[in-house]
Amino acid sequence: MSLDPLIVERLEDVLAALERIPRRFTGITTPEDFYDSPEGQDRLDAICMVLIAVGEAFKQMDRQTGGSLLARYPGVDWPGVKGVRDVIAHGYFDVDAEEVFSICQNDIPVLMDTVRTMLKDLSDDASL
């Protein structure tokens, strides 16, 4: 699949952003930890900002590739990834800490691995 080099650059940016989430999530052992201290609230805010940016980036990439890029990686709930952006951006003061906690624990590692695979696949395709 031949893609605009900007897609690869955007994927690299997304991966760098996603890799900040585990650091920000360190020490958060329950969803309540996000609300128990100002530091926890700051962490929730920071994680939500990354989720908004990542969701928007994938929305744009999906449009730019006519849906073909994300379709190659069905192991990720792409509508969910893109939808989280909308939920947080449009209902910021109603963010569900339990959902963000679950995303950090369960979805972010899979998403990071998938983005790494995407970058490798695109690199391999470019070398053909």
Rank of each mutant, 00 (worst) to 15 (best):
G66E: 11
I28L: 04
M118W: 02
S102V: 07
S127A: 13
D121V: 13
H90C: 00
K82R: 15
E9Q: 12
A97D: 12
F93E: 12
G80P: 09
S2R: 15
D94V: 04
R63W: 09
D45W: 01
D33C: 01
R20V: 08
L122G: 15
Q64I: 03
D4C: 05
R85I: 08
S37M: 07
E12C: 05
S37N: 09
K82N: 03
E99D: 11
F93G: 06
D4Q: 03
C48M: 00
F25M: 02
T29S: 13
P31K: 03
E56I: 01
D121E: 12
L122R: 04
L44K: 05
R63D: 12
S68R: 15
E98N: 12
G40C: 01
M49W: 06
L44P: 02
V50Q: 00
V76T: 14
T65H: 09
D13P: 03
L18H: 07
L128N: 12
E9V: 10
S2M: 14
L69V: 08
T65M: 05
P31M: 08
W78C: 03
I7S: 07
F101W: 05
V76C: 08
G27Y: 08
S37H: 01
M112H: 06
L18F: 03
I108C: 01
Q60C: 07
M1D: 09
P31E: 00
H90G: 07
L15M: 10
L69T: 08
L111T: 00
L119Q: 10
D77L: 07
A57K: 04
Y92I: 05
C48W: 04
D86L: 08
A53T: 12
A46R: 01
S68A: 14
E98H: 12
G80D: 07
L11S: 03
F58S: 03
E32G: 10
D86G: 10
V115L: 09
F58N: 05
W78V: 07
D42H: 02
F34H: 04
A126S: 15
N106A: 07
L119I: 13
V100L: 00
R43T: 00
D86C: 06
G91L: 05
Q41T: 10
L3Q: 06
A46W: 01
M49L: 13
A16V: 11
A46V: 02
K82C: 08
P5Y: 04
V81G: 07
E56P: 01
V110R: 15
I47T: 07
V54W: 01
C104V: 10
Q64H: 13
F101S: 02
Q64L: 15
V76G: 10
F101K: 04
